[in-house]
């Protein structure tokens, strides 16, 4: 399942995540809402926070697994 694949990629990228959620928004397995709370985002502008998530999901973004991605990031401070 795509959700598990995305979760495991994000867990690898943000091992300290206080919150890490991947939701299949439409049930179709290609529109996702990703929520991550991690100290990796502390002090970073929103653009760089989202870039870290995009980087973690580069492969499924490239191979078409992810048709639509919504990102919500939060630092821990």
């Amino acid at each position: 399942m795509a959700v598990e694949r995305l979760e495991s990629l994000l867990q690898d990228a943000f091992p300290d995540a206080a919150e890490l959620r991947v939701e299949d928004r439409t049930g179709g397995g290609d529109h996702f809402q990703v929520t991550v709370e991690s100290s990796s985002f502390d002090g970073l502008p929103l653009l760089e926070q989202h870039r870290l998530v995009n980087d973690a999901l580069a492969e499924p973004l490239r191979d078409g697994t992810i048709h639509e991605l919504r990102i919500k990031t939060r630092g821990t401070t």
Binding site: L46, L47, H50, R70, I71, K72
Partner: peptide
């Protein structure tokens, strides 16, 4: 300069 995608635009 890149501001971001939909989520960032909406949050901002």
């Amino acid at each position: 300069e890149l501001v971001g995608g939909a989520d960032i635009a909406q949050e901002l």
